[in-house]
Each structure stands twice: as structure tokens, then as C-alpha cells.
């Protein structure tokens, strides 16, 4: 998933009160910041690849595991339990959004390298024009990413956020 991550992160921010036991308001600046930062965190594994510190196949490995989500939540919990809960949910939904790609996610690292995938669209790499173009030449990316934007519209309506404020 590429642009659809924006919609998914916004939808997570819309559920902030439910996910954090009322600690964070829906669509608040805090909710959007935590949801977006946590949602993009796994894809920062591209940076060590660009810097040649890691091999290209480092993408979608350690940062896309339940262990990583748990560690991020554990690190945030002492500062703010709401942030930890929202970040954990955001990371899990990032994995769910990436599952349809054929790259597959080794969710249970370090216990097993088995990769899980729904194989709805072919992986086209990361961080290049080819990967962006290739993603949107396939039907299921439009269905799921477009669907995420429709869900965002519904959530904005239900919560009374812009453009329904």
C-alpha cells in the first residue's frame, strides 16, 4: 500500500477515543501526529537501505513484526499510555495494509522467517517511481486504498470532523 496509508492513519486517528479509553480525542492534533508517525515508522527501514547500511532485502523485515510493534508500545508507555495504545494499533493496521502485497511480512520474527501474504497485488519494490507506478497498475490496490478513503469519509461524517464540522 502506498497513498492509502494516509487514509488508514486518519481512520486510526478517528478511533482514538475508543482505542485509548478516552485519553485522546478523535482527529485531534495529538491523535493525528501519533497515528501518522507510528503508521510510517515501519517504512523508515528504507533509510538504512538508501544509506547503503543495509541490503535491499532488509525492507519489510524487522520493522514489520509483532515484536517491533510491542517494543514501540513499550517505549512509549512510560511517557503516555494513550500514545502507546494508539501507536500499537497504528502499527498493527500498517501490517494489515501491507499484507495483500506479495512481498509477505515475517510477522513472527525472530521465531520464524515465514512470510505472510494475501497475494492480492505483486510487490513492486520501495521508494522509487517504478514502485509507485507499478502499484497503481494493479486492481486490488485501487479497491483497498480507495476503500480506505471511503471509510475515512464515513468516519469524518460520524465524528463530525471536517468537512462535516
Amino acid at each position: 500500500m502506498q497513498i492509502g496509508h494516509v487514509a488508514v492513519a486518519c481512520v486510526i486517528a478517528s478511533f482514538a477515543p475508543e482505542l485509548t479509553g478516552g485519553r485522546i480525542e478523535a482527529f485531534s492534533g495529538e491523535a493525528l501526529a501519533v497515528a501518522f508517525l507510528a503508521h510510517w515508522l515501519p517504512n523508515l527501514d528504507s533509510i538504512p537501505i538508501w544509506l547503503k547500511w543495509a541490503k535491499p532485502n532488509f525492507h519489510c523485515t524487522w520493522s514489520h513484526t509483532f515484536l517491533f510493534a510491542f517494543l514501540v508500545a513499550l517505549l512509549l508507555a512510560p511517557f503516555d499510555v494513550g500514545w502507546a495504545l494508539l501507536a500499537f494499533s497504528s502499527l498493527l493496521l500498517h501490517y494489515a495494509a501491507d499484507l495483500p502485497s506479495t512481498i509477505g511480512l515475517p510477522l513472527f520474527l525472530p521465531f520464524t522467517w515465514k512470510r505472510f501474504s494475501l497475494r492480492l497485488w505483486a510487490d513492486t519494490g520501495a521508494g522509487t517511481w517504478t514502485s509507485m507506478k507499478g502499484t497503481y497498475q494493479q486492481s486490488w490496490t485501487w479497491i483497498l486504498e480507495g476503500g480506505a478513503f471511503v471509510v475515512l469519509f464515513i468516519r469524518a461524517y460520524q465524528v463530525g470532523a471536517w468537512p462535516f464540522a
Binding site: Q138, W142, I143, L144, G146, G147, V150, L152
Partner: peptide, 11 residues
């Protein structure tokens, strides 16, 4: 927004 998933179904 609905045209986006509509495009997927058409594809």
C-alpha cells in the same frame, strides 16, 4: 472518493 475503489473493480 468512491471512484477510487470503482476504478479497482473496473480494472
Amino acid at each position: 472518493f468512491s471512484i477510487l475503489p470503482g476504478m479497482g473493480f473496473a480494472m
